[in-house]
Amino acid sequence: MKCRRCSGSAVVEVRRHNAAFCKDCFPAVFTEQVRRAIRRFDMLEPEDRVLIAVSGGKDSLALWDVLLGLGYDTTGLYLGLGIGEYSDRSHDTTAAFAGSRGADLVVVDLAEEYGFDIPTAGRKGSRSTCAVCGLSKRYVFNKAAVDGGYDVVATGHNLDDEAATLLGNTLRWKTEYIARQSPVLPATDGMVKKVKPLHRLSELETAAYAFLRGIDYVVDECPLVAGNTQLRYKEAMNSIEAASPGTKAQFFLGYLDRGMPLFERTSRPTVRPCDACRQPTTGRYCAFCRAQAQVLGRRIEEPGPDDGLETARAMSEEVMPAEMYGAAGA
């Protein structure tokens, strides 16, 4: 196959565009896609301080690499989840990337800061492992951004992530979650602005970018994620995509163009500071503090009528209902 741009030997095929690119052109094409997404959705201003949630995986490191290349003021935030050797390797990989780029990295260890790790929370809490992991990430990312005075939190969610999430929410007609599945969530009520600059790019493309840029990322999957509901949705989408290239992009990007306005909400929940941590919540205590208390065996007031779901939604940058993560690793 020949590169669409230079007719050189192609190394990446993007079937939904019926195109292929060589090792020199593909990173430029990828970067241009990110730049377009940032511009179209007004994700970032040149003077913004951007906190990037980094895991050591291909998506977050590719995102960080692109934003550094585009000249943004970025800091990485790595959250130590306490998942044994997997977390150790993820931390070391992230730190090595930051060191190689001369980039700033903030490390928060869940056990040191909050007294529990994810495997323990999965065993002792009422949420599945993936659900409490997602809740913890969203909480820590937002808190770190507020405390550090950052303007934006950027995450490496890609097209496959977004299409799978939209599929799951649509299958259950979770209309309020569907309404919030935007690549940009504006800052509100103690919530920092959240952006997903990779939402137009597939996992194959982010992996290829990371490989071609020489980024040493963690290839291994989280050992607790087997059976994850989102993985099953991805497999379903990939089966359809294999027969009809472009379906994933049409589904999610078509939703952004034509579907999202049909689901827009006219009212938002009233939020207040959590009595324990001062992060925003609709009840007396936020979902994270209640989960933490449950895992640590501490007493905390019973949840309110919404059982924290509204709070979880307000804090979510992924907007997939917690129950949809299933009982992976529990």
Binding site: C130, C133, F141, T206, A207, V219, Q230
Partner: peptide, 10 residues
Amino acid sequence: VRPVISGGSA
């Protein structure tokens, strides 16, 4: 042959 699919929660 390196898989690219990841299933993490965030």
